[in-house]
Design a binder for these strands. Structure first.
Length: 871
DNA sequence: GTCTTGCATGGGT
DNA sequence: AACCCATGCAAGA
């Protein structure tokens, strides 16, 4: 830490010079060690004459003009540190002008010039210290001007901080810097934001760190705040700053970091000082039972505002913005209700105290300078309070915020609340700022940092498995399943993001309360958040998205008898393909164009984004246009498809017949899957299937699911409708039902045979269950006495509700909902299962089970009711 | 039937 | 275990 070792030849402390010093050196600025920088004559003179920065830092950023005389001052540089004063209204003033006018606004961020300039009149010194103390103790601190230069924790290298008994020590409650561990000091990042964001990352300045004369570029951190200061004021050196980051290990690293932009910096912040009206005094002591310690605020609410955002908030006014807290908007916050739940502590610390549940109107300014007045209130809740801002909806809308976006609360110099916002990465944003968002999310959540694979897909670093068999594939996916991905704030995003696994746009939706989302309370949300929709994939489909990393030899591990390929490298996530071998025995893949649905042959090593089109077919330029026919005939292709992809095969066939109906078919796959369920397991798996065939419904999607209005609303297709869609639906449904019939018959036959083996107890219940397992009987359940397959088919096709939303598990169409195929299938499969159970247990008829008669009646009546009501 | 309001609930921290 | 807070939900408008 000490550069001026007596045993070594001394070098000029100016890093731009580093000349060997002779016997005589000139005294430069005071270093934090208390020593003075030793300068060569040339540098020393420059320093003495006040030209040092002009001479050596001219090309560095951070130059600002004195508001009075216009003189250029290199702000933020230790050398010019004492040369200026920050003005309350923003801007700076050189010390000369300050002396002249002596409107010295003591700035908490900076040691009063009096401490640095012996020449400054005592009057100034006194005022500075006094005012500074009082200001610092009383409320908001212009944090952007408060880079904690004053704070030894954040600025361990400032020269004056050790020996300011009348100044800093006083302010620090006589807390000596020496109380802080050296390690801590050395590990803490510099807070480099100085003035109004004008010092960018690269504007950092040489700060002598005292070690071998080397220099450490000052790290820009946008997250500086005065909380640390307040902690110090409170004599709390151990105040938690969990996010304070290390000074980069190397200069290059620092350069890299600083060049990445502030948003890349680690969130440093503990929350800033409380508001004037917070009822919290400088020591953090609370009034009216309010929080005693600002540090109680959860880190997730700490403002992690970036330089740009600050600039945006402060606008051109250069006003000093104090970030208070931020919140990621939840669905509730961003919803129509217009109630923004405020974190309790934040509300209590930063917003005016309220004693009446009705609260008070709270004026808030948005980024555009528009003024909003929200009702700041609370609800009593479990002996506590729940603070909300009401009426935020218009504002949220005007800022075009959605759940997952972050809203920041800041204060301007006048004490007024200013709302900022930070939108999460949208697909298009992602392209612009992938690093920022990836980092933000990854670091903010402390999750695995996104890695970028060779092919450009960003994936989470873990061990990944790739499929070897269906079973292992499922297991494998379990290791890296999408739910997991979601939990880790990564999701597969289609289209513009090129299927990168990227930070989830709405990390807190469906992740944090994942159970609740699946729970009864959140049924409505099942298909209503984009995330959920996007994540509705089967394991197989998810697995299909994972491709083994190229050149990575898998390790075979056996878990529960399943062989699993485990890769060290993260998988590449992208569009599923059909792997095959060509005539030469080489592995190839078939990949389907997103636009024309044609399948193109590509090399086995190729990987694809989730959206891939013919135009990206670089391997076969002849087939890089959608208009060009595909190489394989559809039948050939169908043979290639795995049996599980019957739906796809059918899509292909249907496409052959009627390309326009493709989208409709996707929605119908859900029906298909319902129809072809075979048993309980199949039911589970196909319930997954129902979500996979059309995983994404977006605005503009014209599939059968999406073109229908919300349940019960809007136009319904009539039974007699002969539009393309309806015809397709009917045709397909007929086929599917037929298939289901066959399978059900087979199944029932098996069940019947099994049943005949144990005693024919004559128990009607069992017989009924047997019937329930019987396909024809099951139809009786559905459509009543005397029905036969043909009649049922007829009915099914005629009365098929085209308004079905197959992907909504809870909200199937009336037909399906209550005399429903699902129900019937469920009943019959349940019946079968129970029957099997009974058989195994000796056909004990006392087993508790619903009355089959009742089941039959229910289904029957429901069905008839529906027959009467639907259409 | 829809919207608003205020409380209750329960998962998460 | 206590508290927070997202959101469900019922009552009223």
């Amino acid at each position: 830490m000490v550069s001026s070792s007596s045993s070594l030849p001394k070098l000029c402390f100016n890093s731009s010079c580093n000349q060997l010093l002779g016997e005589h050196s000139r005294r430069g600025w005071r270093r934090r060690t208390g020593e003075f920088a030793d300068l060569c004559d040339r540098c020393g003179i420059a320093f003495e004459e006040g030209n040092f920065c002009e001479s050596f830092h001219l090309n560095a950023s951070g130059w600002r003009s004195c508001e009075s005389c216009g003189k250029q001052i290199h702000c933020g540089c230790i050398v010019s540190f004492h040369m200026f004063v920050l003005l309350d209204a923003g801007g700076i003033e050189c010390i000369t002008c300050t002396k002249k006018s002596f409107i010295l606004t003591p700035n908490p961020a900076w040691p009063p010039p009096s401490l640095l300039l012996p020449g400054l009149p005592e009057r100034i010194k006194d005022l500075s210290v006094k005012n500074w103390s009082s200001i610092a103790a009383s409320g908001p601190v212009p944090w952007r001007q408060a880079p904690s230069l004053f704070n030894p924790e954040l600025h361990p290298k400032m020269p004056m901080e050790f020996d300011m008994p009348t100044g800093v020590d006083k302010l620090l409650g006589s807390k000596k810097l020496s109380d802080f561990s050296v390690d801590k000091k050395e590990n803490l990042v510099y807070s480099g934001r100085l003035i109004n964001g004008s010092l960018k990352g690269g504007a950092s300045h040489i700060l002598e760190n005292g070690s071998s004369g080397s220099k450490c570029e000052e790290q820009q951190s946008p997250y500086v705040n005065d909380n640390l200061q307040s902690a110090m004021l409170k004599n709390e050196p151990s105040s938690p700053h969990p996010d304070l980051t290390l000074i980069p290990a190397s200069k290059s690293e620092m350069v890299e970091q600083s060049s990445i932009s502030v948003s890349h910096a680690q969130p440093l912040a503990a929350p800033p000082a409380a508001a004037n009206y917070s009822g919290v005094d400088s020591s953090g002591e609370a009034h009216n039972g309010r929080p005693r310690d600002r540090n109680q605020l959860l880190p997730r609410y700490w403002p992690k505002i970036s330089d740009q955002e600050l600039q945006q908030i402060s606008g051109d006014s250069n006003s000093v913005i104090t970030p208070l807290f931020e919140k990621v908007l939840t669905a509730s916050d961003a919803g129509k209700i217009g109630r923004l739940v405020l974190p309790k502590k934040c509300a209590e610390v930063y917003l005016p105290p309220i004693s009446n549940p009705e609260g008070i109107p709270l004026p808030v300014q948005d980024l555009k300078g528009q003024e909003w007045v929200f009702q700041f209130r609370f609800w009593p809740n479990n002996n506590s309070r729940m603070y909300v801002l009401e009426g935020v909806s218009p504002c949220i809308q005007s800022m075009q915020l959605r759940a997952g976006d972050t809203i920041t609360f800041n204060r301007n110099p006048h004490g007024k609340l200013v709302m900022g916002c930070r939108k999460t990465c949208t697909a298009s944003d992602q392209k612009k700022e992938p690093v920022k968002n990836a980092r933000d999310k990854a670091s903010a959540r402390g999750d695995a940092i996104a890695k970028k694979s060779k092919s450009g897909e960003v994936v989470t670093p873990q061990h990944y498995s790739n499929k070897k068999s269906v079973s292992s594939s499922i297991l494998a996916v379990n290791k890296v399943n999408l739910a997991d991905s979601a939990r880790k704030s990564y999701k597969v995003v289609e289209n513009k993001c090129d299927a990168k696994v990227q930070p989830a746009a709405k990390p807190d939706i469906g992740i944090k309360r994942k159970n609740s989302i699946l729970g009864s309370k959140s049924k409505r949300l099942r298909m209503e958040t984009e995330d959920m929709i996007e994540l509705k994939l089967t394991w197989e489909q998810a697995q299909g998205l994972f491709h083994p990393p190229p050149n990575d030899v898998p390790k075979i591990v056996v878990i529960d008898g399943y062989e699993i390929e485990e890769f060290e490298e993260p998988p590449i996530i992208g569009r599923p393909t059909i792997v095959a071998t060509n005539n030469a025995g080489e592995i190839i893949q078939w990949v389907q164009c997103e636009d024309c649905f044609k399948w193109r042959k590509v090399p086995g090593y190729a990987t694809f984004p989730s959206r891939w089109t013919c135009s990206e077919n670089v391997w076969d330029p002849k087939r890089s246009l959608c208009s060009v026919d595909q190489e394989l005939t559809l039948d050939e292709l169908e043979d290639l498809l795995p049996s599980s992809n019957i739906g796809e095969a059918m899509n292909i066939k249907a496409a052959k017949e009627d390309p326009d109906s493709l989208e409709a078919l996707e929605g119908l796959d859900a029906l298909a899957n319902v129809a072809i369920q075979e048993d309980g397991d199949a039911y589970v798996s196909s319930s997954l299937h129902t979500t996979t065939k059309h995983p994404r419904h977006r605005p503009g999607c014209s599939c059968i699911v999406c073109i229908q209005p919300p349940s019960g609303k809007g136009h319904k297709h009539k039974q007699t409708c002969t539009c393309n869609l309806c015809m397709t639906v009917k045709r397909r449904f007929k086929t599917l039902m037929l298939r289901r019939e066959i399978k059900q018959s087979e199944k029932a036959e098996t069940a019947r045979q099994k049943l005949q083996q144990p005693e024919q107890s004559g128990d009607e219940d069992i017989q009924m269950f047997c019937d329930a397992g019987n396909s024809s009987s099951s139809h009786n359940l559905v459509i009543g006495e005397g029905s036969n397959i043909e009649q049922f088919k007829k009915k099914s096709s005629n009365q098929l509700d085209l308004n079905i939303q197959p992907e909504r598990e809870e909200e199937v169409s009336p037909v399906l909902k209550s005399g429903s195929i699902t129900r019937v299938l469920q009943d019959s499969t349940e019946g079968l299962l129970k029957l099997k159970k009974i058989s195994r247990s000796g056909g004990n008829s006392t087993v508790s089970q619903p009355s089959p008669t009742k089941v039959g009646e229910e289904n029957c009546s429901n069905d008839f009711a529906n027959n009467g009501s639907s259409h």
